[in-house]
Design a protein around this nucleic acid. Sequence first.
DNA 1: CTCTATCTGTGAAATATTTCACAGATAGAG
DNA 2: CTCTATCTGTGAAATATTTCACAGATAGAG
Lengths: 215, 215
Amino acid sequence: MNLNIPIPAIERLTKLFSLLQKIKIEGKEKISSAELGSLTGFHAHNIRKDISMIGALESGKNGYDQESLENVIGNTFGFKRKKRACVAGLDMLGAAMLNNPDAGSSEFEIIAGFDSNTNRMEMISTKVPLFHLYEIEEKVKELGIEYAILAVTPENAIKTAERLVTGGVKGILNFSPIIIAPKNGVQIRNIYLVEELRLLSALDAANSQQLKNNI
Amino acid sequence: MNLNIPIPAIERLTKLFSLLQKIKIEGKEKISSAELGSLTGFHAHNIRKDISMIGALESGKNGYDQESLENVIGNTFGFKRKKRACVAGLDMLGAAMLNNPDAGSSEFEIIAGFDSNTNRMEMISTKVPLFHLYEIEEKVKELGIEYAILAVTPENAIKTAERLVTGGVKGILNFSPIIIAPKNGVQIRNIYLVEELRLLSALDAANSQQLKNNI
DNA sequence: CTCTATCTGTGAAATATTTCACAGATAGAG
DNA sequence: CTCTATCTGTGAAATATTTCACAGATAGAG
């Protein structure tokens, strides 16, 4: 498991990419590692090191060129290529994801929704075609879907994830309250509201503890 | 910044806590580090090391006692104490969070919602009291709200986060598509749909790259 | 053209984190 | 009671990651 780029570095570079896209809209053409640092909370040292790992750019005294840096990061990780995604499970959370306005302006295109409840599917207003959960495997293959947002009920989570994997997705973003363990090289990220709140409170507790210890 | 417990360990222990709660419901009283490992994808070694950092339990040959382990982790990070939370921004995503059925069965209680749009607030069906965004500071103090879920529009994100911090929250879970940098010791977690999908694809790209290198 | 201020890029050092390996503990069989 | 199989707990070793410090580069001033 020796990745040439550390996973935390991949996470930081991915955040930087999103930030660079925003900066482009604002018309800023140059940005220094120090500025990137204060916008993200990362150390400038760390940012420079991360960038140097994926390929040196020209040096200079005005910081990084927005466009070159966005391109280097984007090409390294494939952010410049369009990708198809779907949403499985269309209760409130899933429906919100399906209609997320940001996805469309990114490299991801949400091209299908899946649910088990026919009545609900008829009530949802969306331009995206909707299918039954049991059609996942077929539709994922047919439509070339690479990424999935999973927001089904806990009971359906494991089974639906398996269907997605069999269909051939490369990654699953799991919002259902079940930990899905990584499998067959398919990337999984588990994002569970209570878990995230809990982590916030744990980090706060660890911080307070540390302050006490330092007195 | 020398935490006595590494942040990745805190993340793993938090996940273990949630898993232990589920295991309790299933009636399982003992579980080994190996079993915990296969359920989470972590290494058994790592799990034992993490647990040993927060306090040794009795040793044995049947693995960990579900209840003791849940208590040790819970007490270390304060998961046994009730905590009040709110949701700011009540479009589809925010409304879904407000009505999330899992929060109620956890230590978190969502006791207020905030939005800027009076018409929308009248249309939302919820038992939680709703207020205007400009009342945040006052209500956070008055109601003793410790954690906030931020799902406002990008334009309102920074300002709303500042109000929450001024009001005295300890952590913010930010779902709006703006990176909010940590400030004044308030914990922030930025969860942005496109960013998370992008990270999945970046990890996949890094993996593929690595496979190529290993040939 | 020269000089200077201000960045980046990157080996090396310092830290942090994970993995290893095995001693120590105990439940349960007989 | 004794023996054995099966876990955990944890220093030490191995790795991974971050931080440091400064050489090298260049834009822009004059």
